[in-house]
Design a protein around this nucleic acid. Sequence first.
DNA 1: CCGAATCCGGGAGGATACTG
DNA 2: CAGTATCCTCCCGGATTCGG
Lengths: 114, 114
Amino acid sequence: MTVETTDLFGVCPYFTTQKILAGKWAILILHHLDGQTLRFKELERRLSPITQATLTKQLRSLEENNLINRKVYNQVPPKVEYSLSELGESFKPVLDSIEIWGEKYIETLDTKKD
Amino acid sequence: MTVETTDLFGVCPYFTTQKILAGKWAILILHHLDGQTLRFKELERRLSPITQATLTKQLRSLEENNLINRKVYNQVPPKVEYSLSELGESFKPVLDSIEIWGEKYIETLDTKKD
DNA sequence: CCGAATCCGGGAGGATACTG
DNA sequence: CAGTATCCTCCCGGATTCGG
């Protein structure tokens, strides 16, 4: 497949990251997988109102982008574990800075309702 | 307007940041405004194939979230300048970590086509 | 020259039902 | 338990047009 250069994916680091984080749940998933391996069901529970179909799609997307690992146990009942890949692990600084900034931002929100 | 608590906006830092960065051009705009004030037209040029309408919307969104300042000069021809607000400035660490990770990710892409 | 207003298509993602 | 398969809705972002 010829890599389309219609956009700057794979060229501009900001554009590329934007694409990967575009999913509504991407950041949350990476956060929850940070430091621990989780089964599908556990992820679903932690992400509260997310649906199975949506979670599957988001996980597939992150997997295609090599941010997470998917390990399937051939057994009954099925068991699938998700964890951060090496690339996913390297994403941790971004997650950290997001958390710090997000908390500061939320504080600002509180301050504004004077 | 009553702030909806339908989701975790204003509660979870990850969810909150996700909402703010959701726009396709948000990160790019913040990056281009980092360290410099730009007029509408200059931003439009730097963001290449973006349309005026889309750029306006994205800027409005960032403005509502208090990440950027919008200064209007009442003159002909019109002149509107955009710059990072204090909150926007504080977002710089996130931008930096995104840039670093994005570059690493792009390297990985190159390596994979062995 | 800057930007608002309107219309529209496509895709993300949610609801639901069904499989191995 | 961990998905797949459909259907459907909403809304983002682009094209276009209008206003100051």
